[in-house]
């Protein structure tokens, strides 16, 4: 769980950094897209690099979800009977919403791929015209809302996920607990803010 989560986190960070090129203008981000498609093309062929990345991501997602399902199944087996009186579950909100948050994120990824990768659901939908596609999307408040929900879910997911992963890997014993806590929160906030900056910039007209 921690290892696959780590791989996905690295991707998410890179993705977010790439997104910010939107602010440098259409040429910058479209060029970045071309660069990714042509990167190592002599060895891997056109878009080869992207397909390698996609394969790794897919594997990570599958393993991540498998582990999550296994954990959930074990939990159900270990706790077959619930309490008649259900108290508010102690522990943080982020910790409690890992599973449903994960599902929301997975559904979103499907939509997101159809929207901005395949272009099927995009109002503009021209391959390679990343900037225009993005701007076409985020002029609509409901698209922004959908992205917001998903990114906030991702933020919570990362908030507990990063913290939990670091502890699963044995870090965060008393001395470092505060640092781990801060790191998890920092990553979550940074990623959330980074991702949301684009849609809101479009919605409010800073990027056209």
């Amino acid at each position: 769980m921690a290892v696959t989560g780590g791989v996905l986190l690295l991707y998410v960070v890179a993705h977010m950094a790439g997104n910010l090129k939107v602010f440098a203008g259409a040429d910058s981000i479209d060029g970045y897209g071309r660069f990714l498609r042509e990167f190592l093309a002599p060895v891997l062929g056109h878009s080869g690099f992207l397909w390698v990345v996609r394969a790794v991501l897919l594997l990570a997602v599958v393993l991540h979800m498998t582990a999550a399902i296994q954990l959930a199944r074990r939990a159900r087996k270990a706790r077959p009977t619930g309490y008649a009186h259900r108290a508010r579950v102690p522990g943080g909100y982020a910790a409690r919403t890992m599973r449903w948050g994960g599902v929301i994120i997975a559904l979103f990824v499907v939509y997101h791929v159809l929207d901005l990768t395949a272009g099927v659901l995009n109002p503009h939908g021209v391959e390679g015209a990343i900037h225009d596609n993005v701007v076409a999307d985020f002029r609509h408040w409901y698209v922004v809302l959908a992205y917001t929900v998903a990114v906030v879910a991702l933020g919570f997911h990362l908030r507990h996920g990063v913290w939990s992963a670091l502890r699963s890997l044995g870090m965060g014993s008393a001395r470092r607990a505060a640092a781990v806590q801060a790191a998890a929160l920092g990553v979550a906030v940074l990623i959330t803010a980074g991702f949301l900056s684009v849609p809101y910039a479009v919605l409010f007209g800073f990027v056209r």
């Binding site: 296994q70 954990l71 074990r74 939990a75 270990a78 102690p90 939990s164």
Partner: peptide
């Protein structure tokens, strides 16, 4: 023994 896996919810330490 059939105990579930830990997802670090913190419910344990709270009680």
């Amino acid at each position: 023994l059939g105990f579930g896996g830990c997802t670090q919810t913190g419910a344990c330490t709270a009680v």
